[in-house]
Amino acid sequence: MKMAVISEHLGLSWAELARELQFSVEDINRIRVENPNSLLEQSVALLNLWVIREGQNANMENLYTALQSIDRGEIVNMLE
Rank of each mutant, 00 (worst) to 15 (best):
V51K: 15
P36V: 03
E54T: 05
W14Q: 03
N59C: 08
L49R: 11
R30Q: 12
V5G: 03
L10S: 01
Y64F: 06
S43W: 02
V76Y: 07
A66S: 07
I28D: 04
E20G: 04
V25D: 12
V51W: 14
L17E: 08
L46I: 05
G73W: 07
M60Y: 02
M78K: 15
P36G: 07
A4D: 15
R72V: 00
H9I: 03
N77S: 13
Q42F: 01
R19Y: 05
E26K: 12
E41Q: 11
L79Q: 11
S69K: 12
Y64R: 05
A58C: 14
E34D: 09
E34W: 04
L46M: 09
S24A: 08
T65S: 13
M3G: 04
V25F: 11
V44D: 15
H9V: 03
A66C: 13
V51D: 10
L47Y: 00
E74K: 05
E8L: 06
N62R: 14
N62I: 15
W50Q: 03
N48T: 04
L47K: 01
S24G: 08
V5K: 07
N35D: 02
A15G: 11
A66P: 11
K2C: 07
E20R: 10
V51I: 13
M60K: 04
L21F: 03
E26M: 09
A15C: 08
R19S: 10
T65R: 12
L21M: 14
N37G: 09
E74S: 07
A45M: 09
G55W: 00
N35T: 07
N57A: 08
E54V: 05
M3L: 15
K2T: 08
L17M: 08
R30G: 08
I6S: 11
M78I: 14
L39I: 05
M3S: 06
S38A: 07
Q56V: 14
S13N: 05
V44P: 00
F23E: 00
S7N: 07
L47T: 03
V51M: 14
T65E: 13
V44N: 15
L79E: 06
R53Q: 05
L12N: 15
A4H: 03
R72E: 03
L10N: 03
G73H: 05
N59T: 06
N57W: 09
S13K: 10
I31N: 00
A45L: 03
N37Y: 06
S69F: 06
I75G: 04
R53T: 03
E54H: 07
L46Y: 03
N48G: 08
E8Y: 02
S38V: 06
S43Y: 01
S24R: 08
E26D: 12
G11Q: 07
L17C: 02
V33K: 08
M60W: 14
A4K: 15
L47E: 01
V51E: 15
K2D: 04
R30W: 06
V51A: 11
P36D: 09
A66W: 00
L17P: 01
M1I: 12
F23T: 00
V25R: 12
I75D: 04
A4F: 08
A58Q: 11
R53H: 02
N37V: 07
G55R: 06
Y64P: 02
Q56L: 09
S7E: 07
